[in-house]
Design a protein around this nucleic acid. Structure first.
Lengths: 213, 213
DNA sequence: ACCTGAACACCGTTCAAGT
DNA sequence: ACCTGAACACCGTTCAAGT
């Protein structure tokens, strides 16, 4: 019995509950509204209570990012041609982020620390390797795909074709920016997923050519 | 003479001087160190003096971003094959940002407001148009190129091949992430400009195939 | 062991006052 | 007209105190 002198009071929070609360605040009030005080209030606990679960605000943001990325299925794609496998994997990330667009500004800085993205990267590399890529060619292919996913997701949410930025450009003086104005108007007809997929297909075609030669 | 009753005191600052001071602070102390107080101190004026030139901190950041992008040559590339023209234009942005890497985290949000990037986009579209791209195909091509430049620059500066992130990955357990660990080790041999150019070439090859068919 | 609230050292920004 | 400094309403985080 002597080991049970004082029952330690159970923790009232879990990292998952904390991450959910922070994500709720982020979705509701945006990145500027994501403060330690706001998350504490969301949970009904004191602000300082959070520091029992995270070392600082940085760690809380990492928790939120991982909470969103967790939803990405990182299992190998089905038995399909390798370009379809890559398309599938890329789209899983795009869809998961689309559920919580407010997390987009955080992705570049926290991407590296995400266990989910590591597993996802391993799955992408498995597809590339089975397709026949090796060595430096595989490095370039992997980084190009990662760059496209990162870049295109940001384009979609911070510079959306249908967003205000494009409207501003479409209204630009035709004298100074004739092609930009024209392209912005044509862009209205392109759905976000077609833009994402279309760009990815360009990359995949380029990669296919590398395998032929 | 009655129009010259009271000579207005000349302004002591210019937007350019302000932007240079802010850029100096950013380069020295990073984004977290870029505060209104720090920029005021850098200029030897009061903090509040800055508000005569910018409406708020947001506008100061926009000024810094534009100061860096200003250096990008937006004139049409020489009379070269179109893929070389695109390569040239893309590399101009990469090199300008490389001089002030601390500005990278600001790029996604402020890109749209930059007059330089608008002119640069017009130049990219001119090359694409002369190459034969039109309509939706041109929209996709343009956005894919923009996405690659944005994504690859961020990969280079926030997730550099030679950076600590890759070292961490290279040290990962070979059991859990065998391909990631192997690729990270191979990545050490790839220079940043080769990674950027290699990815861009994949995209350009994909684009060339669109013109053939 | 776990949680709390006051306090501290910062921010951006408002505003009344100086020259 | 231009510039300044005190003050206000926020932050993240330290720390001593409560249960």
């Amino acid at each position: 019995m002597y080991a049970v002198k004082a029952m330690p009071r159970p923790r009232s929070l879990t990292p998952a509950r904390l991450a959910d609360a922070a994500l709720a605040v982020l979705d509701r009030d945006g990145l500027a509204g994501l403060t330690m005080r706001a998350v504490g209030a969301q949970l009904g606990t004191s602000t300082m209570g959070l520091y029992r679960y995270v070392a600082d605000r940085d760690e809380l943001e990492a928790l939120v990012v991982e909470r969103v990325l967790e939803r990405v299925d990182t299992r190998p794609p089905g038995d399909v041609p390798w370009p379809d496998g890559i398309r599938d994997l890329a789209d899983r990330v795009r869809r998961a982020v689309g559920v919580h667009p407010a997390v987009v500004p955080l992705l570049p800085a926290y991407r590296h620390r995400s266990p989910t993205i590591l597993r996802w990267g391993e799955a992408v590399l498995a597809v590339l390797t089975r397709a026949g890529f090796t060595g430096v060619g595989r490095v370039i292919a992997f980084r190009a795909l990662l760059g496209h996913v990162v870049g295109a997701i940001q384009m979609e949410h911070l510079g959306a074709l249908s967003g205000p930025g494009t409207a501003v450009i479409a209204a630009l003086s035709r004298d100074e920016f004739p092609l930009l104005a024209e392209t912005a108007r044509e862009a209205g007809a392109v759905a976000p997923e077609d833009e994402f997929g279309g760009g990815l297909d360009l990359l995949l075609d380029g990669l296919a050519r590398r395998l032929d030669s």
